[in-house]
């Protein structure tokens, strides 16, 4: 028989979990509930009453070309940033795992970016990539007008993608390195005995065995780049959604429509749609976790 401490009075237990519940309620359920409510009403910008409008907010959002361009921008951003962050992290992890000289210091070195707050990273990127005064300003001396993210939408997108990827490489790197190091050394040795060189071993043995970790990171990176605080912070500091909405990601559009445009109801409807998107992504993730490849 297992011995358990049992609270006879249920009230004590509730009292103990109350602070946590309160936090979750105040900071999660309340705002979500409010947003849900606002999404179906027309909210007065200066306060003072609202009006039930049913699905009109949603139809307005979904019929707005600007919204769809924002969806497109978000998709481009999410897939490009995820691809870049994963690919780079993979290369770094593979080489650190080979235990070349100095790999120990690189191991901690590569994780640092993740520990820096997104706005701080963005500020640094802003200084480095400023077209007139930044470190890269010299390209404009060779070829005037070559680099200017404040007027060129594609360049602005490149900049935010770079910034996000730079920060997330560290996170992905640690996971991939841990996964690589959990591959038994005997496996790579066996393939060396079978005649495979280092590159061949990476392709045939290490990469296939990394796929579970890789898919996990893919979902995390996609979710984070769609709705994460990092995407918001980076866009807010680097481009403010511009130029001409080229980097107006969904998370940023909600903020600027709601708090700058004072369209609370439209922003609330967008939040609900975005929340559904996250739920779909999470659902995919869980489906994947369920079917996860088990090699043992």
């Amino acid at each position: 028989m297992e011995k358990r401490a049992v609270f006879r009075a249920g009230s004590l237990a509730y009292l103990l979990i109350l602070p946590q519940l309160l936090l979750v309620f105040v900071f999660f359920y309340w705002p979500t509930g409010a947003a849900l409510y606002w999404a179906f009403t027309l909210e007065m910008p200066w306060g003072g009453g609202n009006q039930w409008v049913g699905l009109e907010n949603f139809s307005a959002v979904l019929n707005d070309a600007k919204y769809w361009s924002s969806v497109a921008a978000s998709c481009v951003f999410a897939f490009a940033a995820t691809a870049l962050a994963l690919a780079q992290a993979l290369v770094l992890a593979l080489f650190v795992d080979r235990q070349l000289r100095g790999s120990k210091s690189f191991r901690s070195f590569y994780v640092w970016p993740y520990a820096v707050a997104a706005p701080a990273v963005s500020l640094a990127f802003r200084f480095i990539f400023a077209p007139e005064t930044g470190l890269v300003a010299f390209v404009n001396q060779w070829w005037p007008g070559l680099w200017n993210p404040s007027i060129n939408g594609a360049q602005a997108m490149t900049l935010v993608v770079l910034c996000f990827a730079w920060k997330w490489i560290g996170y992905n790197f640690i996971f991939l390195l841990a996964a690589l190091q959990s591959i038994p050394r005997a496996l790579t040795e066996a393939s060396a005995m079978d005649g495979a060189g280092p590159l061949r071993r990476m392709l045939d043995i290490q990469l296939p065995l990394l796929t579970p970790t890789f898919f996990f990171l893919l979902v995390i990176n996609l979710t984070e780049s769609f709705v994460g605080a990092d995407s918001f912070g980076i866009v807010d500091i680097l481009t403010e959604g511009g130029p001409a909405n080229a980097t107006n990601l969904l998370v940023y559009k909600i903020y600027s429509d709601g708090f700058k445009g004072l369209d609370y109801s439209g922003a609330a409807a967008q939040s609900i749609i975005l929340m559904l998107l996250v739920m779909v992504l999470t659902f995919i993730q869980f489906r994947w976790v369920e079917r996860r490849v088990h090699y043992k």
Binding site: A186, E189, A190, M193
Partner: peptide, 20 residues
Amino acid sequence: LEPRERGCAMVFQNYALYPH
């Protein structure tokens, strides 16, 4: 010489089979 150039084959203690 690299392992592959030595013409040896090895059987490992924990088999070291490629699980995938």
